[in-house]
């Protein structure tokens, strides 16, 4: 498993946790959890949808002159 997927799993966990905490808490704190929930879920879900990278050497981007 590469590092992108690992970060994705961490983001998914944060997103899920804040989804649960959002309904438990009240007031401003619940908004804070909502704000954490949306981008983390977006990244966490997105990373498992995107196709697997086809680069031979990970992290070396063609644009940089490699």
């Amino acid at each position: 498993m590469d590092i992108e997927k690992k970060v994705g799993i961490v983001c998914l966990i944060i997103g899920m946790l804040s989804f649960i905490l959002m309904f438990i808490t009240n007031g401003l704190i619940s908004y804070l959890f909502y704000i954490l929930f949306v981008p983390n879920i977006l990244y966490g879900v997105g990373i498992f949808i995107v196709p697997k990278t086809r680069r031979k050497k990970l992290g070396k981007i063609p644009f940089r002159g490699y």
Binding site: D2, I3, E4, V7, C11, Y34, I35, L36, V38, P39, N40, L42, Y43, G46, I47, I49, V50, P51, K52, T53, R54, R55, L58, G59, K60, I61, R64
Partner: peptide, 27 residues
């Protein structure tokens, strides 16, 4: 829906946190 890979020069986790921060800020 496009593939990503982190550049070898990138400083993680700041690199990945920045797009998330963008959404956090505006939300």
């Amino acid at each position: 829906f496009k593939e990503i890979t982190f550049p070898i020069t990138a400083g993680n986790p700041l690199y990945i946190f920045m797009p998330i921060l963008q959404i956090i800020v505006w939300l």
